[in-house]
Design a protein around this nucleic acid. Structure first.
Length: 220
DNA sequence: AAACGGATCAACCGCGTACTG
DNA sequence: CCAGTACGCGGTTGATCCGTT
């Protein structure tokens, strides 16, 4: 025979933890440490399964947890680690004392992915969105002698390729493409220009594509 | 003030691996 | 070595919050 079953599923509580449950689990672990999660709820007087207790401790109750928003430096590091490791959240979290894999995973899915799309980057590959087919076509079509830098050739061609039928901005990807084009145009006018991102989708949704192709307009 | 929709995040689910007898 | 289970991980869900209409 192998190990004993994890827990009796019948009669166990599920859903959000109460203050009382948190207190019981916290007190028990601080006094006894963690040997076996299966027996923790029994000894701590909790109607939860060991798995649930483990998750609650790791993600919420651990005293060494660092709470609060992620800093710019942390976000940059997450992006770099994700480029190397992929979705191995526990490996990534190991580089951030006080942060949990769940926290980093949530932050990635809700914020960083969007930020990368704003920057015109594919969050899965970390490469520019649509790079391959657009670059190939760009190189062919610019044999007519236009004097543009390679990244302007790239972004301007993307705008032509990706512009929607109704001219209306309708997705994060749309914004990413336009931001790239707009950024490159402003850079060419003013080398010290730094791209800023809009704070809110509502700041920009519903705008027309042509607004972003006017280099005289500052964005945000 | 109410309804709605999007964002956030805690918690659950299911699977692969490690472990035990 | 095998069967059966605990553990850990990544993906997903759903409750709640918050801003907008």
């Amino acid at each position: 025979m192998g190990r004993q079953p994890c827990c009796e599923k019948n009669g166990l509580r599920r859903g959000p933890w109460t203050l009382d449950e948190d207190h019981k689990l916290m007190t028990f672990i601080l006094n006894n440490g963690i040997q076996c999660w299966r027996i923790v709820p029994k000894l701590a007087g909790l109607m939860r399964c060991g798995k649930s207790c483990r998750l609650r401790w790791i993600n919420y109750l651990r005293p060494d947890l660092k709470r609060g928003a992620f800093t710019e430096a942390e976000e940059d590091m997450i992006i770099q680690l994700h480029a190397r490791l992929g979705n191995r959240w526990s490996k990534i979290a190991a580089q951030f004392p006080g942060r949990t894999d769940n926290e980093i995973k949530n932050h990635w899915n809700t914020r960083i992915k969007k930020k990368m799309k704003f920057m015109g980057l594919d969050p899965r590959t970390h490469h520019p969105i649509g790079q391959h087919h657009n670059l190939d076509q760009t190189i062919k079509r610019n044999h007519n002698g236009e004097s543009t830098s390679s990244h302007n050739m790239f972004s301007n061609q993307m705008i032509k390729e990706e512009k929607p039928e109704n001219d209306q901005i309708s997705s994060i990807e749309d914004i990413g493409l336009m931001m790239m084009s707009h950024n490159h145009q402003l850079e060419s006018l003013n080398p010290s220009f730094e791209l800023e991102f809009p704070q809110n989708w509502n700041d920009i949704s519903g705008l027309q594509w042509d607004v972003f192709n006017d280099p005289g307009l500052g964005f945000h």
